[in-house]
Nucleic acid binder design. Structure first.
Length: 300
DNA sequence: CATTTATCCTGTAAGC
DNA sequence: TGCTTACAGGATAAAT
């Protein structure tokens, strides 16, 4: 379940239900699930066997479980890194119950309690054994801090955003600038700040950018409090339950329905092979300003 | 170099 | 009722 609030809901579930438990064995049922683990599926399964899950951490949409060798009583050094992709789930299951169709990797525990099933219909998600990755896996060193982290430097991010010529929405979705925001919360934050998605980052005043990040923090926090957003059974917590933030969405997925602020019908536009939802009144399209090159071209 | 696009998958819903 | 097409919450290598 893709964006930050949904991933955080999963992280909390893992902290509660698998932290402190020892992995007895892992079964890789679909090789694509561990495709980014270079040494291969067998190495992956061997690496996690016998490890104690020391906790559950998250940055943006990435999750990792720090691992400590059983019996060593040592600090965790390695980690199991997880990205849920578009349709990934981490579900608890009773060991004697059959596996559903899209279970890609299963982890069994030495206590013989509920197992953990990485379930992923579209197989965009993946798992990696991250050596030395307990604090922060090297594989995600390019992922910027997310807005809910204490180290998130809003002023610095705003400065970078305002130096960009691409659209403000593309910047919000760029995980190397700020992580955790996906298509839903980008649209919702832009609506809250009354900014059209196609405005160049460089066109935002500092106060407008500050408004935008206030909107980002608010919508992420509210969605998290509601247990995340889900439109269908694909986006659920470790116990298979859906969050209920979808009922609080102002524009995302609501084409033609009234803007909660002004009543105008929500508009949908094409954006990078997907959709951007906005209010045509609250978020007017930027007026197209000819680039320097276009001006030169037309004047001759 | 910054920015955009094409691609990896499966399933569902809408349109004909 | 089929069959085809568009679309879905993401990340990334390749292209521009």
């Amino acid at each position: 379940m893709p964006e930050l609030p949904e991933v955080e809901v999963v992280r909390r579930g893992l902290e509660r239900h698998v932290a402190g438990r020892t992995i007895r064995a892992a079964q890789v049922l679909h090789p694509r699930a561990v495709r980014r683990h270079q040494p291969g599926a067998e190495d992956f399964a061997a690496a996690v066997r016998g490890q104690v899950i020391a906790g559950a951490r998250r940055r943006g949409k990435y999750l990792w479980l720090p691992l400590a060798s059983a019996g060593a009583a040592g600090v965790a050094e390695d980690a199991l890194l997880v990205h849920l992709g578009m349709s990934g789930q981490l579900l608890l299951g009773e060991p004697d119950r059959p596996l559903s169709a899209h279970v890609r990797v299963r982890f069994e525990f030495t206590d013989l309690g509920p197992d953990l099933r990485f379930t992923d219909q579209r197989t965009f998600g993946h798992l990696v054994y991250a050596r030395g990755g307990a604090v922060l896996p090297a594989l995600i060193s390019h992922i910027a801090p997310d807005p809910l982290e204490p180290t998130f430097d809003e002023a610095a991010v705003i400065a970078k955003l305002r130096a960009r010529h691409g659209t403000v929405k593309a910047a919000l979705l760029d995980q190397s600038l700020v992580s955790g925001i996906g298509n839903i919360y980008a649209d919702e934050a832009l609506w809250r700040a009354k900014i059209h998605w196609a405005r160049p980052g460089s066109s935002l005043t500092r106060p407008a950018a500050a408004r935008l990040f206030a909107g980002v923090r608010e919508v992420l926090a509210e969605a998290l409090a509601a247990g995340g957003t889900s439109f269908d059974s694909l986006y659920v917590n470790v116990n298979g339950e859906s969050g209920y933030f979808s009922r609080s969405l102002a524009v995302y997925g609501r084409e033609g329905k009234p803007c909660p602020r002004c009543g105008a019908p929500v508009r949908r536009e094409k954006f990078a092979n997907r959709s951007a939802y906005s209010c045509p009144v609250c978020q007017p399209r930027p007026r197209v300003r000819a680039s320097v090159r276009d001006l030169r071209h037309h004047s001759t």
